[in-house]
């Protein structure tokens, strides 16, 4: 094996001159460039600008005043920011748990459906592709205090009307109901894909061994769905941490500034809604940018947790 340093280039790429290499690589870079161009213009540049803005005081027009770390100091002592963080986490929990549960049930039902299964799949995907704003307006009617369907159901159960959107927990229920509604079908399809990847033979053996439905589900189905459930949790975590539209549409009618945004007791004020209100309603772009970076750090933190948890699972397997 003497004389060989590393593997030989298979296509002889290394033996080419720089200009020849350039010539061959150019189409590849060309094919990749649109993404990087758009990322640069609409992703990286705004991010860098936002980072710079976080150290300033700017109304969106006119002079930008550099104020150092003042905004960050304020962020750490801002009760409204921590309230919005807490709201976001609560809404994430209230949205993700029912979404996962319902999606699993729906997927199991779809999996055992013989007829019209494509029709069902299309129907379940519709909420996910419908405009959130339109559904937000619809949901504000469903949860209206006098005439909403939510209250009609409650009346059937023998309870009095609840003013959902004027109640701190009612707002959260309405927002997470909207989140659940829009994501349950999509997630059901992901889980369905996971279900169909499970080897049918295992169910047959379980049936031969006399396992009942519950045992089959908890011993065979659920463990093998774990990767897909982690994937959905990761997606919904990132999505929920940045949720905005649901809360904005359901609580916008009375807000004049950030401190009154998100409905009664700011209970629907998510982090992104807070940053939006500060920057675009109150023209405080500097502090708005600081909050946006706060959101970024929180999202990074939770993504890291997710990543660590899923990585450990893989290591245990091997």
């Amino acid at each position: 094996m003497s004389g060989h340093k590393g593997p030989q280039p298979v296509d002889g790429f290394r033996s080419l001159s720089t200009s020849q290499r350039m010539k061959r690589s150019l189409p590849l870079y060309g094919a990749l460039s649109p993404y990087f161009f758009f990322f640069l213009v609409f992703g990286a540049m705004p991010m860098i600008f936002t980072l710079a803005l976080a150290f300033t005081n700017w109304s969106g027009l006119g002079d930008i005043e550099f104020i150092g770390f003042e905004n960050f100091g304020y962020l750490f002592s801002d009760p409204l920011f921590f309230k919005s963080l807490l709201n976001t986490l609560i809404l994430w929990f209230m949205g993700t748990i029912p979404t996962l549960t319902l999606a699993t049930i729906l997927a199991l039902m779809l999996n055992s459906t013989m007829r019209f299964s494509t029709t069902y799949r299309v129907i379940y995907l519709i909420p996910n592709v419908t405009s959130l704003v339109a559904m937000g307006i619809l949901f504000s009617s469903l949860f209206s205090s006098q005439f909403g369907i939510a209250n009609a159901l409650i009346n059937l159960l023998g309870f009095d009307n609840i003013a959902w959107l004027q109640n701190e927990w009612g707002i959260k229920v309405a927002i997470s109901a909207l989140t659940t509604w829009s994501f349950v079908g999509y997630n059901a399809l992901l889980i369905l894909a996971g279900l169909q990847a499970i080897d049918k033979g295992q169910y047959e053996s379980a049936a031969l061994d006399g396992a009942n439905g519950f045992q089959t589900f908890f011993r065979i189905t659920l463990p093998q769905l774990r990767p897909i459930v982690f994937f959905i949790t990761l997606l919904s975590t990132i999505g929920s941490l940045q949720s905005f539209t649901e809360a904005q549409v359901l609580t916008s009618s009375l807000s004049s500034g950030a401190a009154s945004a998100g409905g009664v007791g700011n209970s629907g004020l998510t982090m992104v809604l807070y940053f939006y209100s500060v920057a675009f309603q109150e023209n405080r772009y500097g502090y708005g940018a600081t909050i946006a970076w706060g959101v970024f750090v929180v999202v990074m933190f939770f993504s890291a947790i997710n990543w660590i948890v899923t990585r450990e699972k893989k290591e245990k397997k091997s």
């Binding site: 003013a163 004027q166 109640n167 701190e168 009375l254 807000s255 004049s256 500034g257 950030a258 401190a259 009154s260 945004a261 009664v264 007791g265 700011n266 309603q281 109150e282 405080r284």
Partner: peptide
Amino acid sequence: NTVNAPFYAEIDLVEA
């Protein structure tokens, strides 16, 4: 609006 928003938020709490 930035400065008066807390008053609206609080009077909402009184009401709700």
